[in-house]
Computed example of a mutant assay.
Amino acid sequence: MKKPAIFGKAILSLAVLALSFGMTSCKNEPKTEDPKEVAEEENETKFDDTKKAEEDAEILVDAAEFDLQQRELGKLAQAKGVSTAVKDLGKMMEKHHNDSFNELATLAKGKQISIPSAITEDGQKEYDRLNKVDAKNFDKEYLDRIYKDHHEAIEDFTQDGQKTQDVEIKAYLEGKVVALKGHHDAIQQLQTTTAKK
């Protein structure tokens, strides 16, 4: 009767030994990553990309808003400006910002980014405000407004150009900063001339 008990113990010992070998061999294999951790890492990468894409979209939307407003204010300056110099500046602003907007629209389309196609509510409010200014004050008010707008845009476009990692958007913004500085200087010169009159 004792033989079967000894035999049973031997089998049990072998099973424990085999199991411990099995566990040891598992420990020697390269550790597989936790599926949850893998998923979290993938999501972090996805959301990082999405955040960057959202930031780039916001940059282009802001740039479009600026171009559309400056284009419409340029038209207004041609209609309401008193001096020929302000009318000419308005014409130049309309053309340059229209060309800039068309370039931007092509860039945005290639990136599948939606941008406004008409003047925004804020832009319209400023247009309406300037449209109500009486003729004798219009030139000064217009120049003051677009001087401020261009000054801020140069700062914004410079910062956005440093922030974005998209090569095409960066190149677009850097090119616009150069153009805006040219506008800024022309406005400032005209402000000086107008103030002397």
Results as ranks from 00 to 15, higher is better:
90 G>D: 09
147 Y>L: 14
152 E>Y: 00
168 E>K: 06
177 V>A: 02
55 E>Y: 04
25 S>E: 06
96 H>V: 14
172 Y>F: 14
38 V>R: 04
194 T>K: 15
112 Q>P: 04
33 E>W: 05
172 Y>N: 07
156 D>N: 09
61 V>R: 10
7 F>Q: 05
29 E>K: 07
135 A>Q: 15
126 E>I: 09
162 Q>C: 01
127 Y>L: 14
196 K>F: 01
44 E>F: 04
90 G>T: 15
13 S>V: 04
19 L>H: 00
165 Q>I: 11
171 A>K: 13
92 M>H: 00
77 A>W: 13
185 D>Q: 08
165 Q>L: 13
55 E>Q: 11
154 I>Q: 10
122 D>N: 12
49 D>H: 09
193 T>M: 11
68 L>P: 08
80 K>M: 07
153 A>Q: 02
72 E>L: 10
187 I>E: 11
74 G>T: 07
68 L>V: 03
133 V>K: 14
192 T>K: 15
195 A>M: 10
123 G>V: 06
70 Q>L: 10
182 G>C: 05
111 K>W: 11
4 P>Q: 05
15 A>E: 02
8 G>V: 09
170 K>E: 15
95 K>I: 15
189 Q>I: 01
58 E>I: 06
21 F>A: 15
24 T>N: 06
87 K>F: 01
107 L>P: 09
99 D>T: 11
195 A>D: 10
149 D>K: 08
113 I>S: 03
78 Q>W: 01
101 F>N: 06
132 K>H: 11
134 D>A: 02
30 P>S: 05
4 P>F: 05
13 S>R: 01
177 V>C: 13
5 A>I: 11
192 T>E: 13
188 Q>I: 07
1 M>I: 08
184 H>Y: 14
23 M>T: 05
68 L>E: 05
45 T>P: 02
149 D>G: 04
195 A>N: 12
159 Q>N: 15
100 S>D: 08
152 E>W: 08
34 D>R: 00
7 F>M: 05
181 K>C: 02
78 Q>M: 12
76 L>M: 09
56 D>W: 05
84 T>H: 08
102 N>F: 08
123 G>W: 01
98 N>M: 11
186 A>V: 03
1 M>Q: 06
113 I>C: 04
118 A>C: 09
104 L>C: 04
151 H>M: 06
110 G>Y: 07
143 L>N: 06
10 A>R: 07
140 K>S: 12
100 S>Y: 00
130 L>T: 03
43 N>P: 03
173 L>G: 02
148 K>N: 09
